[in-house]
Structures are given as structure tokens and as C-alpha cells.
Design a protein around this nucleic acid. Sequence first.
DNA 1: CGTGACGGG
Length: 680
Amino acid sequence: MPHDPKPPPAKRFKPGSPFSLANKKPGMLLPKKGNASSQIDVQRKHLPIYQAKSQLIDQLRQLPNAVLIGETGSGKTTQIPQYLYEAGIGRQGIIAVTQPRRVAAISLAGRVAEEKRTQLGKLVGYTVRFEDVTSVETKLKFMTDGMLLREAIGDPMLLRYTVVILDEAHERTVHTDVLFGVVKSAQRKRKEHNKIPLKVIVMSATMDVDLFSQYFNKSPVLYLEGRQHPIQIYYTKQPQSDYLHAALVSIFQIHQEAPLSHDILVFMTGQEEIEALARTCRDIAKHLPETCGPMIVIPLYASLPPAQQLRVFYPAPKGCRKVILSTNIAETSITISGIKYVIDTGMVKAKRYNPDSGLEVLAVQRVSKAQAWQRAGRAGREDSGSCYRLYTEDEFENLANMTVPEIQRCNLAGVILQLLALGVSDVLNFDFMSKPSPESMRMAVEQLDLLGAVEQREDQVFLTPLGKKMACFPLEPRFAKTILISPDFSCSEEILTIVSLLSVDSVLYNPPARRDEVLLVRKKFISSEGDLITLLNIYRAFKKVSGNKEWCRENFVNSRNMSLVGEVRAQLRDICIKLGLKLESSLSELANVRRCLAHGMFPNAAELQPGGTYLALDTHQTVAIHPSSVLFQAKPAYVIFNELLHTSRCYMRDLCLVDPDWLQEAAPEYFRRKIHISKS
DNA sequence: CGTGACGGG
């Protein structure tokens, strides 16, 4: 199977100077894809992977592990599971295919069911959170990697499965990285216990090949040809000090020179930047000579309402240019057809983790080479295209090869808890493909220790009975702990609501243009006891009108996120019932709720200082109340907060007023130490 | 006095 990892030859251009067009001919029309089932077989046979079918089956039959490298469009994800099934490989159990995202798992299952001409949920099914479309007949199961991890807690050897296919492995999400270790150990254990072997197939784009192969006992790497069209890459001649300006200039150069039917996709870093550039583009486009043609500018980022996200898929009116300004959401999650030009600023907003302070910070930084290739690839999905990189070739060469795997950039408390629940005996030496730093491992263990989830004896970490229960919840450890202690305060119903509200995207809708209206309408929910109680009030009011959409609109509440809160809450409540927790409501007695929150979240406590700032008692950082908090003006002596946000300052968000005595009673020794230090 | 890249259970 041929494989050419060499990137296309590079050309240079300078924003603001004329550059030669890569392709003057108008975009070719593609043959329309039919949906009639008679055409499905024809389509399947036209996929590049079909040529290699018998060879692939022979290899996969005998190999316990394989790494499969295939470009987008190779058809590997839909075809390999079917090939295995049709060849009778792994028939004794289920073939699982994991995906980092829900939508991908759901749509792939739909596609494969269609190809097999069966009803979804029979032979082919999917499992994601809140949705299980499988049955006893299901042999090909698409699922999120997080879902398989959850299942592994009850079944560490994954005995229901004969084959696990880890797709999109190059994305290196936390879940995929943990799964690498889980399936590897399941393979070994099954061998030791003389169980049916587990076959593991890692699927990835053209990167990380050696790492994957090494990790899975030097397993062979199979290459699949893709159906990617050639992409011409351009670099700037000089480094650009202002990538936004460079992007603006490049957009209008292409706009002036390329046929209007060619769409442009620009990769940028965040919402604010995108909205600002969109405004500028629209302004400029208005004042261009008529020879240029009109331009439609579409912003794209995750927090955009779904209806507005859909706009990127509508073709622009004839004779109008479509320009999409996007975050990295268009790198993987959303695929837009018809993109002819990609402009890559070379920058991305990404999470960084400081294990010493335990603080996660969002920062604008340079992309990796792998990411730059992923972005460029978005220009060549249906036809040849061009990618304009707003940096020099030298700068490109100096980029990191790979994006640092997320597991090396995040708080590991949840991961460690999950591994312990899986029965991993020596967590500190868990066989990670890319080991997180010892400091961040230690930090996570300390956090779990503080919550009472683990005990440390002779350099070993053990799960406590409380920790075992905590692991049952699909939540951050501190939230699980708060729920588990809530029966002691007779307020589980309220705590379930608050935790659910904090574990989904914000239910508060804050359009900046209607700020005054928002403040006015929100007044009636505000509690002087803080943001968490305010949120509880909003949820109660929402329930009172049974989730009325009109009510949501009037009150600037995001109804979709609010419904999600309900789903999460129901799931958590079920887990509570299975664990035999006594569920009570404290109704109007909200001091109980705050006391419970103080006991569960005491590591996130802060104390007012004479100067009016706060001191985070755990890390002794100086912090401030975020201006969006209902306690912003009040400045109470002691608060707990849900999270720290590091922007212009270090802000606490989602606060709750607490009594210092509650903190003392929650963790006497800890606070004796902390408060002692803070006073000295 | 002023804000959150993207996912997932």
C-alpha cells in the first residue's frame, strides 16, 4: 500500500503583495452522491480501502495489535469494522469502535447500519452518554471513548469485546490516552486468564506512528491510501508581527483575485477575535469597488447557538464569496465542504497546566506541525486547494511536531481516581503512552487524599471506600464527594441540582448588547448567599414553569443547557439511589446546602484580606471575585468558589458564602495549617 | 470592575 508522507512543495507569499493563484479554473462540480441503497455497494467498492480489503483482512486476522494509518477519506472507520465482521473475525463478542466525539459515534453507526441494510440498534448500534442504541444482536458498536472507559470500571478486562478499535487516536484526548493503557492491560490479563484474546486496532492520521507501534509491542503499521486532493502550501516571506492584520490582508487579496465560488476558511483563536475581524471584513467589503463582488462573513465557534453554527453549511448566494472565521472547532469537530482556501494564523487558544499551582490557564500559543497539516487538509476535501500560512517556512520548521497530549496538560485527579477504580494497583507507575510529569501525578494524589478518596501507604496509593463510591459518578472528584456527603446535611436534592448546573456549560445567556435587560430580569433570582444559590433559584423557577421555552427566552436562560442539566441530574440521582443514599430536600433551609458545599469543596476556599483582595487558602494565591459574580460588591469574609479563571487577574467564579467554622469542621487539621500560614 | 479553545462521562 503506497504511502507518501512528504508534504507538497512550498511557495512563499507576502500578505499585502500580489501572489500567484494556485488554481485559476473554477471549482469542479462533484458527481452527486446518491442515497439509494443500490448505490451503497458501488460506493463502498469505490473507496480507496476496497483495493486492499483481502490483504487487510489476512493481516488483521493474525495480528493481536495493529496500527492503521489512513488519511481522511480512506473509509477506514466505516469499512474495517464491516470487513472484520464479514470475515468472521471477533464473532464471539462485540467489535467496539471508539470516537472522541458523540456526534461522530452516532453518525458513523447510522452510516454503517445503512450500508449493512439493517435497522440501527440491531447488528450495528451506538452507545453515548444518555443514549444507548444497542441490543443483544449488536455486534458492531460505535461509542465514545469516555463511554468505554466507564464500562471498563465494571469490567476491566472488557470481556464483552473481542476487538477494540481506537479511532482518531492522533487526537490524543485524555480518554483515548487512558484507554490505551486499559486495553493493553486487558489484553495481557486475558492472556493470563486464558480468556478469548482481545484484538486492538489503533487508527490514526499520519502522525505518532512510531509511538503507537512501540507502545503496542512494536505492532505492525498498515498504511492506507486516502482520497485527499493536492494542496498548495504558501508561507509568508517575513514573520508577521500581527497575525490578525495579516489574515485581513490575505482574505481580501484572495477575495480580489479568486473566483467568487471559492470559499475561504480562516483559523483563528477565539470568539472575541473572530467577531471583531468579522465586523472589520464586513465594513471593508462594503466599500470595495463593485468589480470585487459581495462577501458573506460567517463566524464559527462552539458557544455559538446551533442555528448560527448551521450557517457555515449553506452555500453562499451565487456571485458571493463565503468567508468563514473559525476557531479550531473546524479542525476536527465540524467539516465544511467546498473550502478552497485555508488561511492559517498559526495560533490557537489552548489549555496549559501548571502542576505547581494546580492552575489551568487558557493561552494563545503556536500550533504544532501536525495541527498545521490538519488545518491545511481542510482545503482539499473535494478538490485541490491552497493553504496560506501566515508565518515563514523557518517558523514552521521550528514548530513542535505534535501537540502535547492533553493528559500532560490537565489536572489528573479524575484520571487517577478512575484508574484506581479500574483496579490498577500501582497508579503512579501506570503504563501511559506519554507519561504525565511526576509533579502533576503527585498533585492529583494529594487532592484525592484531601478529599478522603485515597490513602497513601509506603509509596502506594489505595482507594478508600469513599473513593470507590466517588468513582461511580461521571463527575470531577470534588463534585462526587459533595454529593456523597449531602445526606449528612439533608439536602441531597439541592446539591444534585447545583452539581448538575456546574457540570454543564453555563445556563446563563448573556448577550452583551442587552446587558441592562439581563441585569434587570436576573435580579429576582439573585441570592446574597452567592452564585450557587442563585443558580439553584433559577433552576427551581425553571422547574416551576416546567421548562417553558418562552420563560427561558424572557429570562435569558439557555434552554438547551438547562434541559441538559435535567438529564445530568437524573443520571446522578439514579447513581445515588443505586448507592443507597438517602435523598432529602432542605427546601428553604439553604444554610444546610452551603454548609454541605463548604464540606465538599473546602480546598476551594478563600479569605478576604485587609486590602480587599482574597487569598486562596489552598495555594496562597491572591485572587479576586469575578465581576460577573453576584457577590462582586459584597465581599464576604469567607467564600468557596467553583473555579479559578486566569485572565487579567486570577478570578474566582461561581461563589458561595460560607461560615469559617464550617471550613474548620470540614478539615480541622488542614485549616489549622493553612490559616496559620496565612496569618504569619 | 469585566469573560470561557475544544471535547467527554
